[in-house]
């Protein structure tokens, strides 16, 4: 049965994981230490796995015969529904970690709620993902503290990185009309309710990291309705090239 709202929602969840997984895989072979390379790949693999499941669910909800690969490789920017945070460039290690820190803490709270979703597929995905993301949170939190309370250079870079990413935090906690109906039916999580716990977690870690919570500013958003930053287009160009250049091919 076609369910356009569920399609939209599952795309948001899947695209968040896919785009962030793609960003992390750019680090492969280039991390500051071999052990860190393995961590990034671990997180990336978890995210790509989540994306695959969510996009499969989305394809089913759309009912137009598109599977997870068709959705991943044949939508253009206007139809991608990831938040702006995950498509931000890696920058240096501090910028990457700042992105991971803000996002994974949000994702853990989100998945905990989705474990009681009215949609059983979402429950199944969330139940597995919540364990994976608990580890992502640990990694990111610990690195924020090491970098914030490390050397003067690492502190400065982390301030910069956090400042870059903070612009996109508010979007994570926005609800629009598409999601309202799903919240009412118990399928989706009301992310507004996650904000205060997220704030508390972030504040605590930043304090341990000797970092200030960046000051509030005007929300930058649009990802959920396909209005992305300039970065997504380039990312998709790279990601989708083979499937676009060789249509109707099996890989």
């Amino acid at each position: 049965m076609r369910d356009p709202s569920l399609f939209d929602y599952a795309c948001r969840l899947g695209d968040d994981s896919l785009i962030l997984g793609q960003r992390l895989s750019e680090w492969c072979g280039h991390a500051p230490m071999l052990e860190v390379d393995l961590s990034f790949a671990n997180v990336g693999l978890d995210l790509i796995g989540q994306a695959t499941h969510f996009l499969k669910l989305a394809g089913g909800a759309e009912g137009a015969g598109r599977d997870e690969d068709k959705l991943a490789f044949h939508r253009d920017v206007l139809d991608f529904k990831n938040c702006l945070l995950v498509e931000q460039p890696n920058g240096d290690f501090a910028q990457t970690m700042a992105r991971q820190f803000l996002f994974s803490n949000y994702q853990e709270l989100l998945f905990r709620q989705l474990c009681s979703s009215a949609n059983l597929t979402i429950v199944a995905i969330a139940a597995k993902a919540v364990k994976e993301v608990a580890y992502h949170v640990r990694l990111a939190n610990e690195w924020m503290v090491r970098l914030g309370d490390g050397t003067a250079e690492s502190h400065a870079r982390t301030v910069e990185g956090l400042d870059w990413m903070w612009r996109f935090a508010d979007e994570l906690f926005e609800v629009d009309s598409t999601v309202e109906s799903l919240i009412a039916s118990g399928v989706a999580c009301d992310v507004r309710k996650l904000r205060s716990e997220w704030d508390a977690r972030i504040t605590k870690v930043l304090r341990d990291a000797t970092l200030d919570v960046p000051k509030a500013r005007r929300v930058t958003k649009g990802g959920r309705v396909g209005h992305h930053s300039e970065h997504l287009g380039h990312l998709l160009t790279e990601m989708q090239f083979l499937q676009r250049a060789y249509p109707d091919s099996q890989w």
């Binding site: 230490m33 052990e35 393995l38 961590s39 671990n42 580890y135 640990r138 990694l139 610990e142 090491r146």
Partner: peptide, 16 residues
């Protein structure tokens, strides 16, 4: 594994 502190060592060990 090489790690700067115990937490990192545990995580590196897990990932490796």
């Amino acid at each position: 594994v090489h790690a700067a502190d115990a937490k990192m060592a545990l995580e590196a060990a897990r990932d490796t």
